[in-house]
C-alpha cells in the first residue's frame, strides 16, 4: 500500500471480549468524527470494524482471550486507514476464508460474510495471516468531506 502522510492517529489495545465489539465501533466513530463523514460512510466503517474485531474474538482467539490491537490513521486526502490485528491461531487458508458464505463455525449461526462485508464497505482490504501466529487486517476508505 502506498505511503501517505498521517494527519492523526490512534492506537488502542483491548482484550478479545465480545462486549468490546461495540467499544471498537464507538472508538472508530469518535476518531473519524473530525472528518465529518456522511452517515452511510460512518455505518460502513463501523460495520467493517465490527466484522474484523468479531473475527479476532470468534476465530483468532477461539476458546481463549487475547489482545486485539486497533490502529487508526487519518491520511492525506480524507483517507481512513484501519489496521486490526490479533496474535491468535491465524487463518489456515485465507482464500477459502474470504469466500462468501464460508464459515468455520456454522453451528453458531455465523453467516460467513465477515470478509465480504469488509471488502464491500471499504475501498481496500488486505489480510495477512500466519498459521499459529495471528492475523492482521488492513482496510482503507476515502471519506467524502462535507462542506462545514
Amino acid at each position: 500500500m502506498s505511503r501517505s502522510q498521517t494527519l492523526n492517529e490512534l492506537k488502542v489495545a483491548f482484550p478479545s471480549l465480545s462486549e468490546n465489539e461495540s467499544l471498537a465501533r464507538l472508538i472508530v466513530s469518535g476518531f473519524v468524527s473530525g472528518l465529518n463523514p456522511m452517515i452511510d460512510e460512518l455505518s460502513d466503517v463501523k460495520t467493517a470494524v465490527s466484522e474484523a474485531v468479531t473475527n479476532c474474538i470468534v476465530h483468532g482467539y477461539r476458546n481463549t482471550v487475547g489482545t486485539i490491537k486497533m490502529h487508526l490513521r487519518i491520511l492525506e486526502g480524507n483517507e481512513l486507514y484501519i489496521r486490526i490485528s490479533d496474535k491468535g491461531c491465524g487463518i489456515e487458508n485465507i482464500e477459502r476464508a474470504m469466500e462468501p458464505l464460508f464459515t468455520s463455525a456454522p453451528d453458531e449461526d455465523r453467516a460467513g460474510l465477515g470478509f465480504t462485508v469488509m471488502e464491500s464497505f471499504m475501498d481496500k482490504l488486505s489480510v495477512r495471516s500466519k498459521n499459529g501466529n495471528g492475523t492482521t487486517v488492513t482496510m482503507r476508505k476515502k471519506l467524502e468531506s462535507r462542506v462545514k
Partner: peptide, 13 residues
C-alpha cells in the same frame, strides 16, 4: 440502529 453480518447469521439460522 446497527447490524453487522451477525444479523445475517441470525436471519439465516
Amino acid at each position: 440502529s446497527f447490524m453487522d453480518s451477525s444479523g445475517i447469521g441470525l436471519v439465516m439460522g
